[in-house]
Design a protein around this nucleic acid. Sequence first.
DNA 1: TTGTAGGCGTTATCAG
DNA 2: CTGATAACGCCTACAA
Lengths: 316, 316
Amino acid sequence: MVTLSDVAKEANVSKMTVSRVINHPEQVTQELRKLVEQAMTTLDYHPNYIAQALVNNRTNVVKFVTLENIDTTEPYYMTLLFGFARGLAKKQYAFQLVTDPSKIEQGNADGYLITGARSKDYEYFDKLDKPFVLFGENHRGYDFVDNDNQLGEKKATKYALSRLYKHLIFMGIDVKEPFEYSREAGYINTLQQNQMIPQIYRVSNHSHEAQKVIKEHFNSFKKDTCFICASDRIAVGVVRQLLKEGAKLPADFGVIGYDGVFLNQVSNPQLTTVKQPILKMGEFLADMLLQKIEQSGSPQGEIMLEPSLVRRGTTR
Amino acid sequence: MVTLSDVAKEANVSKMTVSRVINHPEQVTQELRKLVEQAMTTLDYHPNYIAQALVNNRTNVVKFVTLENIDTTEPYYMTLLFGFARGLAKKQYAFQLVTDPSKIEQGNADGYLITGARSKDYEYFDKLDKPFVLFGENHRGYDFVDNDNQLGEKKATKYALSRLYKHLIFMGIDVKEPFEYSREAGYINTLQQNQMIPQIYRVSNHSHEAQKVIKEHFNSFKKDTCFICASDRIAVGVVRQLLKEGAKLPADFGVIGYDGVFLNQVSNPQLTTVKQPILKMGEFLADMLLQKIEQSGSPQGEIMLEPSLVRRGTTR
DNA sequence: TTGTAGGCGTTATCAG
DNA sequence: CTGATAACGCCTACAA
């Protein structure tokens, strides 16, 4: 293993000069810097992250925490995880997966990414002694990354209008969480701007629940109705029942989902949906967390990435 | 942060005695050992893994490498990953995700878990300078964990026979890989034991490819045929086309999948399949890799876990 | 059986 | 701007 000392010898300087070239290059003269850099490449030197971690009192490890007791095998989470991992790799960080909240502080880590947090979990966060960032919007001042939920549903609603659907019904998720409020707000605001009256159903986030609602109320739905759904799952349920009822899709009815996780599914017809840039969100989460760690916990604010509307088979 | 020295002071011994209590307790007298252990609990001491890593020239990090250029967001991989992560957690190991093989040796790690390896990749492995284990059976002497593919397909074939299907057709994957040969062998051997003649189709691992084959040959399939499929994807394609052809499932035709990844899907009818214990496989992989690292690379052999037959809607 | 000295590879501090 | 020294927390080797 090539060490700092080896490079120092090769370049005829002290270890400190080499260290400075790595961490504070501006403090070293051009001349010496080049010499050292050459030595580093000829010896193929790579810093020992463990030694760095020791002096800095770091572990080079963070934890990916999943609070929501959901199906963690969903493509959604896997994509987020891959983005997160990619972000970490840039700084040679590794991670551990934690699904049991009581184990968060067990073992060593420099910080946490917390996903699936609900309002009830917030008070718990203040007890954490390490920097953390949240995945998912909140309005309590905790740093987070999310997609812009309001903008996303605004895009969906506007698009439905542009396709000349006359009646827009929102199929929401029945949780009292910021992301849901924001999605509804995107829908409601757009309707109000067009002097239309919002009509909202809320169901738990399962396709068959949405299906039930459509079945119950199908007779009350008029032609030219578009369903703006707060998730792809709900949208899938809506589509399924509409087809069962013999409705003409997308001619008479439209359906728009949210999330964009079923995009590679071959089901017919393919869902028009608002796609979150999940991979990128994961990467931003890593960036934010590492920066927060570097800045010993200082606030990082909020990052909301723009989702994109994917036009496919369930809208005309 | 509580350190070795703190504990040593509290217990009125030297640092080395404390270190020994942790690593070689048998070298310390009962008396001192208890003293030290008490001091450790009262101070809530936890070893600093980074410092340990530095002296041992370890990183406490391994890499999870995905060679196969597939959809890594599949629940299959996510489940494996969770099992793997759980296994690592027991020894306070963290991991990095690597999808670009050229980056395997970049950065620090104590070893690698390599998934999705194909025969062509094997020669590459010998160049690796760190211990590694494979996910997926091979017969070149590389340590691996897999499910027992032959046993799995044997179970499927026997079960089809027990349900009195008269004709058993194998729908394989057209790759020349050990896992596929083993699955075919499980089918072939069982047929031969029953004086039946194997009939095999091979397609690439996509539902629509399987669907094509069924469509083309549907007229040649007799009543009481059961399709033993080498994957759930293929099975799904078979089911889909059989239904399209108006075949009676499971009365006249049976379909058995392999993998068990679609188990929580609500699609109708639900697939009878051979389920791999994926989570457990991930955990075994972690155990094996960490042990191999601890034993500085000594061979660990092969572990084949028993898959289970899940009886559901596509067999009578 | 227990303790002392030295070192793992790096960086902060302070002196030159 | 550069270099010597000490320190991070732990463990190996040797000494008592």
